[in-house]
Computed example of a mutant assay.
Amino acid sequence: MIEVNGLQLIPADMSLAEEAADYYRRNREFLKEFEPEHGEEFYTAYGQKMGLIAEEIAMKRGNICRFYIRHKDMPGKIIGVISLSDITMGFFCSAFLGYKLDETCINRGYMTELISWMVTYGFETLHLHRIEANVMPKNERSLRVLEKNGFEREGLAKKYLRINGVWEDHIHMVKINDGMH
């Protein structure tokens, strides 16, 4: 576990299945606007356990770096997720940043702080050259938090992801590791 200013980052582990299911059930309506459609099993401990097992395997292979977020004052309660996924090394040295937070925890600076930490981790520990994030234009909070962390708009990806049953455009945001040669 890693602690960042009172926020605990716990690597994906199947022991988090019930907490993760609880997080997704609590935030089902809040996240619906920004998430792919999920079947009912997704919201169960069993469904989360299957996902966590896959994440553990991907982490061991170096394809993903995923942390579940708790607040130190709320033990046993996941309040979000942050990850670097599709980690590609070699000539590319790139990954995609993903994150989500409990509806009751937004607008407190938590995600700004965690993205800053994750970018530093990606650049200094994983030796990434580029971290990318894709955000729907209507998700102003997410765009703002990325801009606060130095991400720049690189373009618009038309009908990029199927979110809640609709192919949505996404703004492609990027942060480059200028210290990497």
Results as ranks from 00 to 15, higher is better:
4 V>Q: 13
5 N>F: 09
6 G>N: 10
8 Q>V: 15
8 Q>D: 04
8 Q>E: 12
8 Q>Y: 08
10 I>G: 02
10 I>V: 12
12 A>G: 09
12 A>S: 15
13 D>H: 10
15 S>I: 06
15 S>T: 12
16 L>T: 00
18 E>R: 07
21 A>M: 08
22 D>E: 12
22 D>P: 00
24 Y>I: 07
24 Y>V: 05
26 R>E: 12
27 N>P: 05
29 E>N: 08
30 F>G: 09
30 F>W: 15
31 L>D: 03
32 K>A: 09
35 E>P: 07
35 E>M: 05
35 E>R: 02
40 E>K: 13
43 Y>W: 10
48 Q>W: 01
51 G>P: 00
54 A>I: 05
55 E>K: 10
55 E>P: 00
57 I>K: 15
57 I>C: 05
58 A>E: 11
60 K>Q: 14
62 G>D: 03
63 N>R: 15
66 R>D: 00
67 F>T: 01
67 F>K: 03
69 I>D: 09
69 I>Y: 10
71 H>K: 09
71 H>I: 00
79 I>G: 01
81 V>P: 00
82 I>Y: 01
85 S>Q: 10
86 D>L: 04
86 D>W: 07
88 T>G: 08
90 G>K: 15
90 G>T: 13
91 F>V: 15
92 F>H: 12
96 F>D: 13
98 G>C: 03
100 K>G: 01
100 K>R: 13
102 D>M: 04
105 C>R: 13
105 C>T: 03
108 R>T: 02
113 E>K: 11
115 I>N: 03
116 S>R: 14
116 S>G: 13
116 S>Q: 12
118 M>T: 05
118 M>R: 08
119 V>E: 11
120 T>D: 15
120 T>L: 11
123 F>A: 02
124 E>L: 07
125 T>F: 03
126 L>P: 00
128 L>R: 01
129 H>Q: 13
129 H>K: 15
130 R>D: 06
131 I>V: 10
131 I>S: 08
132 E>S: 06
133 A>S: 14
133 A>T: 09
134 N>V: 05
137 P>A: 01
138 K>E: 10
138 K>S: 08
139 N>V: 05
140 E>M: 06
141 R>G: 06
142 S>V: 01
143 L>P: 00
143 L>C: 06
144 R>M: 02
145 V>T: 15
145 V>S: 09
148 K>L: 12
149 N>H: 09
149 N>A: 06
152 E>D: 10
152 E>S: 13
153 R>E: 11
153 R>H: 02
154 E>V: 08
155 G>M: 11
155 G>K: 12
156 L>P: 11
157 A>G: 11
157 A>K: 11
158 K>S: 13
158 K>A: 14
158 K>R: 15
159 K>R: 14
160 Y>F: 12
162 R>T: 10
162 R>W: 04
163 I>H: 01
164 N>R: 07
166 V>T: 12
166 V>Q: 14
168 E>Q: 15
168 E>N: 11
169 D>H: 09
170 H>Y: 08
171 I>Q: 13
171 I>M: 15
171 I>R: 10
174 V>I: 15
175 K>C: 03
176 I>G: 10
176 I>R: 07
177 N>E: 07
178 D>H: 10
178 D>E: 14
181 H>T: 15
